[in-house]
Structure formats: structure tokens, C-alpha cells
Amino acid sequence: MFTPAFFTTALLYLGYILIFPGFLFCFVVGLLLCGIDRKAVARMQKRVGPPILQPFYDFFKLCGKETIVPAAASRTTFMLAPLVGLAALVVIQLFIPVFNFRVFRNLPEVADMIVILYLLLIPAVSVMLGGAATGSPYAGIGLSREMVTVLAVELPLVMVLLSVAKAVGNELGTGLVFSLSGVVDYQAAHGSLIGHVSMIPAALAMLLIIPGETGNHPFDAAEAETEICEGLLAEYSGAPLGIYKLSHAVKMLTLTSLFVALFLGGIGTGVEHLVAAIGLTGGVAAALSLILQVLILVLLCIVLTLVTISFVHAVTARLKIEQLFKYYWTVVTGLALISLVLAWYGF
């Protein structure tokens, strides 16, 4: 079975994992988003704010620093947790389709929406286990808050995904579409889902979920540097801390690109016709349309980050943990419920 075709596909998939939607893409675009977020927040406070590449400097500085393993920590979990968290996040990014481009075009699809919902749990659990392994009481408090945040965000996120599945299922007549590429294909044909009446509350709810899921400002009770000294990351220093900051940035990318795939799928898919209109054909056209789609995706992610994370960060103050929980389980869940009921009765 070691035919040359096998080797080329293996190389291709290795490229997918390491270069395009995988590690390198996440690394660059993730930290870029983080930089733009910090710059936007500063600009909104009339400050000049750090250079866009500041997260890169932070990451490489942390790589250079010494990693102190506290005596009370259990060493292997302490060192392994960040790596597993980042690996899981990068793998999630593989499943999110970039408009027409999908990593697993000719393979049976690996994961659908509910699976992605659960895959998002792994990075959260890895942070918690890492924090718990240090044994510091700050990490204990951070763990308790992080878990309540995950609990709070889970309910509305589930409802949003179910309502999208039902809405697309209604249109296609098959009742239910769980696969993400199915949703994007539908949007390619019928225009992005945000246009549907029933989908607007769901999109709004998803916008409110993104800062909560990534643990950004108003919902960062888990890593409140003023109250519990960076909570879970209290005892981390050096490279593991750098990897946690990197996975935080990549999570921003993953969630925004998930939002684009779910609700704005229709925007990028029209590019083929454009490229065809210019008259290019064959490989060049495919490459050009791919690059264009990636650019559109990154652009949309940047706009989304500005709206959902930076703006909310500049305008609000940090919520107490039980306010956060109540906010998510009443306001955001209400929105998601509206769209679920609307989708249910076939709007």
C-alpha cells in the first residue's frame, strides 16, 4: 500500500496539518488577531497601544525565559498540558471549512458540529489540568471559575448549533444537517445563513459567546490578574506560558472562523465565478480563488474580533463569576432559544 500516490497524499495532509489550515496558519493569524485586538482596545482608550506584532514579541520572549517548576507541582502534567491543549486546538482548525476549500474533501468527514463543540472542551480541560497540577490555591480558584465559565457558555453554544442544523435541515428537506461542510455548501448555493429570519438571534447569540468561550475581558474571571494573580496561569513561566498565550490567540481565530463558516458562508464562495469571469482557468484559477478565500476569511475574522472582542473589552468591566453565569444562562440562552423555536417551526 506504499504506492507513490499514498506518499503524495500523506505529504499533502502533512502540509495541511503543518502549514495551511494547521499550525503555521493558526500561529500567524492567531497572534495577528491578538495584536489587532490589543491595538484596537488601546485606540479606543485614546492610547497609542502596542505595535501589531507585540504578541509575537511576547511569545518569543517567553520562549527565552526560564521555566520554573514549583516544588508542589506534579511535573509531567505541568509540562504536557499546554502542548495537548494547543495540538487539540490546531486539529479543530482543520475541520473548519474555508468557504469552498475543505481539508477532507475526498475522505469521509472526520468531525461534525457536535463533535467540534466537544473538541472545544479539550483546550479548556488542558488549561484546567495544567493549573490544578501546580497546586497553587490561586490556580484552584481559577479552575473553579474557568469550569463555571465553560458551563455557562456550553448551553447557548449547543442551542445555536442545533438551531443552525435544524434551519439548514429544513431548507434541504433532510430534517437535520450536522456536517459543517454541508452547512457551508448550502450557504454557497442559497446565500449566507445570516439572511434567514430565524438565524439572526442565533448569530447575535454566537457573537456574545465568542468573548466568553475565549475568556476575553468582560468574561475573564478565570484569569483575573488583579484578583487572583492570573488564576490558572499563576505558576506558569517561560515556554509553557507562551504556549498557553498562543493557544488563547488560536482559540480566538478558531471561534471567529467557526462563526464565519456557520453564518457568513455565502460571502467567500462566490469567488470562483469572479475568477472565472477574469478568464483564468485551471490550476492558477484554483490557487487564486483559494488565496482570495483565505484573505476574505482572515478579513472577516479581523472584523469579528474588532466587534466582539475588542469593542466589548473597551466598553465593559469584568463580571463577577455568578453574574457571568446568570448573564449567559438568561440573556444569551434566550436569544438562542428564540432562533431555535423559529427554526423549529420552519421559518
Binding site: A40, A42, R43, M44, Q45, K46, R47, V48, G49, F311, A314, V315, T316
Partner: peptide
């Protein structure tokens, strides 16, 4: 949310930092 207007408007103004 008291600072919504300031946040948006200050995006387009010059920063009040004297470098």
C-alpha cells in the same frame, strides 16, 4: 454602557499620548 460613544469616536481621533 456609558463609554460606547467615546470608544467609537476615539478610534478615529488622534491619541492623546504625547509620545
Amino acid at each position: 454602557f456609558p463609554f460606547v460613544k467615546e470608544a467609537i469616536s476615539s478610534l478615529f481621533q488622534k491619541s492623546s499620548c504625547d509620545m
